[in-house]
């Protein structure tokens, strides 16, 4: 056993390196591309050595996409802002609605509670297109099409089941006796929810919120169908890079870097909660 340990360590190191290369290489390559012009990107053979340029980022931020033949106006920064606004608001609304609901599903076993919880989860099963076509018509009739409010509403289909099921698992993990003890000590139901259940499920709520944010950020199809240009998030807006006159890979790469930056930063910051939240909460739920 002890003799093996050196060999084991070497093998483990090799395996880890392989996995890191496999997953990180595309990101690294795109990062490098975002500092290059189309010419250096497309040269054969490709090389990691080049003269870095900031023109891609500059044109994205200024909103002027310089194609090979003409200059195109794009709203990349406003797309980025839309993404941020839609995701943050959706998650906030999702948490406000989802956390108390998750608590109810975890603690108050009422008639049909399991069915309702499952129905909510089943929103995730159906392909979004199935819901989208009728929704588009309804939204147009009630005036919600192409509004932030309408989008946030639809985003709840993504965000709410996720929050509900992860947070519910967390609430169920809190021994009921701890909450009973607080109530018997003389505190009301709501005080117990705020002072005991919420803080103890804190990591789970943070993880669920984070994951919901990433899912909302990465959403494409809802916004594509339901939003017009000025409400579009960055995922839809990125289509503009594919122009009739060609594809500017450097600018796409820079756009990708900018659009994954917020989720990347968040995920790095809250990695611990995320892993813990997923492995604890979701398994139980």
């Amino acid at each position: 056993m002890q003799k093996n340990s050196n060999l084991e360590n070497v093998l483990r190191g090799v395996a880890i390196t392989a996995i890191i290369l496999f997953f990180m290489f595309p990101i690294l390559w795109i990062f490098l591309m975002s500092f290059q012009t189309n010419e250096t990107i497309l040269r054969v053979p490709p090389s990691p050595f080049f003269e870095p340029t900031l023109t891609n980022y500059r044109s994205l931020i200024s909103g002027k996409l310089e194609g090979s033949t003409a200059t195109l106006e794009i709203a990349f920064m406003s797309n980025l802002y839309n993404s941020l606004f839609l995701s943050v608001t959706s998650v906030t609304v999702g948490l406000i609605l989802g956390v108390p609901a998750a608590y109810a599903f975890a603690r108050l076993k009422f008639r049909g509670s399991e069915d309702i919880a499952f129905t909510l989860l089943s929103f995730r099963f159906a392909p979004p297109l199935l819901v989208l076509l009728p929704l588009t018509i309804y939204f147009q009739q009630i005036g919600l099409a192409d509004t932030y409010g309408g989008l946030i509403w639809v985003y709840q289909l993504i965000v709410l089941p996720l929050i509900l099921w992860i947070v519910r698992g967390y609430f169920e993990d809190i021994p009921a006796d701890i909450e009973y003890a607080y109530r018997i000590a003389g505190h009301s139901f709501w005080a117990t929810f705020r002072k005991i259940a919420l803080p103890l499920a804190g990591p789970g709520i943070a993880a669920a919120g984070l994951l919901a944010f990433i899912f909302a950020w990465n959403n494409f199809i809802f916004a594509l169908v339901l939003a017009s240009a000025d409400k579009q998030p960055v995922t839809v807006g990125a289509l503009a890079f594919i122009t009739a006159s060609g594809i500017n890979y450097g600018q796409i790469a820079a756009g990708i870097m900018l659009s994954i930056a917020p989720t990347f930063a968040l995920a790095l910051y809250a990695q611990r909660y995320l892993v813990e939240g997923l492995s604890l909460g979701a398994v139980k739920g």
Binding site: Y180, A181, R183, I184, A185, G186, S188
Partner: peptide, 9 residues
């Protein structure tokens, strides 16, 4: 409600 029963546990 439990909080109004004046008990300790």
């Amino acid at each position: 409600e439990p909080e109004d029963r004046n008990i300790g546990m």
